[in-house]
């Protein structure tokens, strides 16, 4: 069975998404909604990391239950940097770049969860299916958030 491999991949991708969302938050502290939401949504992915690790043992994978932590010093430096460039219109382009990346990473995670859900149905593992459905629903909200923010922010940044 190759399910363990998929879970390992998903574990990595969720962790990566959480890290990216935290970076987006730090880098765009002056865009207050993005700062707060990206942090909140990173927590969802961090929780998914824990849940994947908790269930992956049954599929032959020992995965770290702890999501990668934040580098607090680095975070502070980024936040300060964000405040310094907050009045520079070029920072807008970086924001679009970061949101695009968040969207793509969330899409990747979404595909991963679909694979897991398909497999779980195939082997009738209802608890795995339950985890997949619950986490995937949150993942889709992360995706829509990144996409929505991207659309909402693009025009002003690109035409000004």
């Amino acid at each position: 069975m190759k399910l363990g491999l998929v879970l390992e991949q998903l574990h990595r991708d969720e962790d990566d998404l959480a890290q990216h969302l935290l970076r987006v938050s730090e880098r765009h502290k002056v865009d207050h909604e993005i700062y707060h939401l990206a942090r909140d949504l990173a927590k969802w992915s961090q929780q998914h990391v824990r849940e994947i690790a908790a269930i992956a043992g049954r599929y032959g994978r020992e995965l770290d239950p702890e999501p990668k932590g934040e580098n607090t010093l680095l975070e502070k430096i980024r936040e300060k940097g964000s405040e310094l460039v907050g009045r520079d219109a070029e920072a807008g382009l970086l924001l679009l770049r970061d949101l695009r990346e968040a969207y793509i990473k969330a899409c990747g995670v979404s595909a991963d969860w679909e694979l897991v859900a398909q497999a779980a149905q195939g082997i009738k593992h209802m608890d795995l299916l339950e985890v997949a459905q619950r986490c995937h629903a949150q993942n889709l909200r992360q995706m829509k958030w990144a996409n929505g923010k991207l659309k909402e922010s693009a025009t002003q940044i690109l035409v000004s």
């Binding site: 865009d31 207050h32 520079d88 219109a89 920072a91 002003q156 940044i157």
Partner: peptide, 16 residues
Amino acid sequence: PPTHLMQMMRYAEDGS
């Protein structure tokens, strides 16, 4: 969506 006030203040802050 039409730009909300707090975002308008942000755009005024970033100079756009």
